[in-house]
Amino acid sequence: MWWYLAKRLLQSLATLFVVSFLAFFMSRISGSPVDALLPVDAGQEEADILIAEWGLDRPLPVQYLTFLGNALQGDLGEALKWRGQSALGLVLERLPATMTLAGAAILLGLVIAVPLGVISAVKKGTWIDRVAKVIALLGQSLPEFWLGIVLIWIIAVNLGWLPTSGTGGLSHLVLPAITLSTTLVAAITRLTRSAMLDALDSEFIKLCRVKGVRERRIIWVHALRNAVSVPLTYFGVLAGAILTRTVVIETVFAWPGTGSLVIEAVLGRDFAVVQAAMIVFVLVFIAANLFVDILYAVIDPRIRVE
């Protein structure tokens, strides 16, 4: 077990290294931050001062090595747009809002998708199954930003049931969480359904019936525990994807999380913040997948490592 964790940690470090490389070079494709930050009437001297101050006159590989060296010491640099603040500090300050939103979306998604998938497998071919199929189809195909705007328009503007945007109590969380959870609901419902159909068709379920086990226990204990590793695998991928999708959703709902910070940073060409956000996102993604792997072993003894 410990050896396995150590191995995973090493793999994660390798991933982080690749990500740092991508984050560094990709954020420089968009152009120079100097143009974005200085007033339109600023002269070349002012620009040169900034360039020298940030070290942008040095060759790119040198800049990258400096960045990497600092990053290894936990310093992801100073924000360019929000002068005087550390990039990592800015990201971490906004992270709880994003995690709350993503967590709510994941929780909501699972609470809907797993039972829906199980029920549509058990009631295969009935109207419940068909409704679930339509829900999954819509969740998969509707663009999230569009769905978010439509929800705001109908539920917040016309009906006035929920606030349109911003943060506050639980009521502010509902619409963005629903919007963010749609893809998860769609994918997990379908995967749970097909995995449950397989599980329910297996010999050990037949044996349970021969033993006289109650149908409810057969479905929710025996079949589901065998089926759940399929949606769980995809859940590891989705958990990360949800984090990146917060970027869009937070903008639509003016949710003050890391996602909207990243948009501001990209528009302001603030590499430091973009890099910091990417690295933090990747860390969360790696943690989510490690958590999923551990869950696997808990659920299925065949995967447990010696």
């Binding site: 010999e203 050990f204 037949k206 044996l207 349970c208 033993k211 006289g212 003894p301």
Partner: peptide, 25 residues
Amino acid sequence: MRRIRGRRMSMILQDPQSSLDPVFT
């Protein structure tokens, strides 16, 4: 029927490899 299955009438299924639930002892 559930009370009869397993108690008064029992069955051995074809395939021992797959008739036990893999996730329980």
